[in-house]
């Protein structure tokens, strides 16, 4: 059980975590202020200016359709970060509700949700997502739904475990002994005590989601061109790898720095919370 305030000061003392946090903040800031920062319209095609080297007008050059790479990266971070946050929020809230219900109420509710979860957990994550996308067809919305369907059971199981051990803890028993209503126990004893672990799960989930959304877009299953997105940009620049390697380097760098940052941050939080094992 850790105090969140306490964790924050500890977090500041860890270099990798601090660097990750700064990178994440920069990415988020860039995404939020994209319209102000972007020098060009990310979707404006100007074939005459295709494949330019980085220069003052185009800080990171232009792509094969003459679109400003820098602007596209900025707008792309909106899509990548926004979509993966959405996946995370859906995942965490669904699994919070289910995990808490199953862990705290127990009995048949627990049995139903956990057996249902077993079915989802029986398939490898990626395979399940691919199958669902295959059935529903490509597109951002479908990818998001598929990712949540493929992931909720895993998180619900972890959260259920935390709730279960807290439910058996002495201070929850003490609260029951003094006649505290069970909803109050849930809200004031159980939820606050799992919040730091849930934050860690959420952080790691965002990293995972960024990677997968870009990955699916790269395969043509996710976000469709011309929408600027890191995975789409990576895919578009594949044919120019030998002539203009920078075109692939930039979106690749964005994806990896974002994913690595979220993972490092999650790991640091995990370490601070003293959590053992793999999450």
């Amino acid at each position: 059980m850790t105090d969140l305030k306490f964790s924050f000061t500890e977090l500041m003392q860890r270099k990798p975590a601090l660097v990750s946090l700064v990178i994440i903040l920069i990415l988020v800031l860039g995404a939020v202020c994209a319209p102000l920062l972007a020098p060009h319209d990310p979707e404006y095609v100007e074939l005459g200016r295709a494949l330019l080297r980085p220069q003052t007008d185009y800080p990171l050059g232009t792509d094969h359709l003459g679109r400003c790479v820098f602007s596209r990266l900025l707008y792309g971070s909106r899509v990548s970060l926004g979509a993966s946050s959405l996946v995370m929020i859906c995942n965490i809230s669904i699994s919070l509700v289910i995990g808490i219900l199953a862990g705290y109420k127990g009995g048949w509710i627990d049995e139903i949700f956990m057996r249902l979860g077993d079915i989802f957990l029986a398939f490898p994550n990626l395979v399940l997502t691919l199958v669902i996308v295959g059935m529903m067809g490509p597109g951002l919305q479908n990818i998001l739904i598929a990712m949540v369907i493929a992931q909720w059971a895993w998180y619900a199981r972890i959260i259920r475990g935390m709730v279960l051990s807290l439910r058996e803890s002495n201070f929850v028993l003490a609260a029951r002994v003094s006649g505290v209503p069970s909803f109050h126990i849930l809200l004031h004893h159980i939820l606050p005590n799992i919040s730091s672990q849930v934050l860690i799960l959420a952080t790691l989930n965002v990293g995972w989601a960024i990677l997968h959304i870009s990955g699916f877009s790269f395969l043509g299953l996710g976000i469709q061109p011309p929408t600027p997105e890191w995975g789409v940009m990576l895919k578009d620049s594949r044919s120019y790898f030998w002539s203009d390697p920078l075109l692939m380097l930039f979106p690749g760098l964005m994806i990896s720095s974002a994913v690595v940052s979220f993972n490092l941050l999650g790991d640091a939080l995990k370490e601070i919370a003293g959590m053992k094992g793999n999450l």
């Binding site: 059980m1 105090d3 803890s169 002495n170 201070f171 028993l173 003490a174 609260a175 029951r176 002994v177 003094s178 006649g179 505290v180 004031h188 004893h189 606050p192 005590n193």
Partner: peptide
């Protein structure tokens, strides 16, 4: 519970929620 029966639990160190 609590109103008619008061219960003093065995392990005081573990019987309090650390966050409140």
């Amino acid at each position: 519970l609590g109103k008619q029966v008061g219960f003093i639990m065995q392990n005081p160190m573990q019987a309090f929620n650390p966050l409140i």
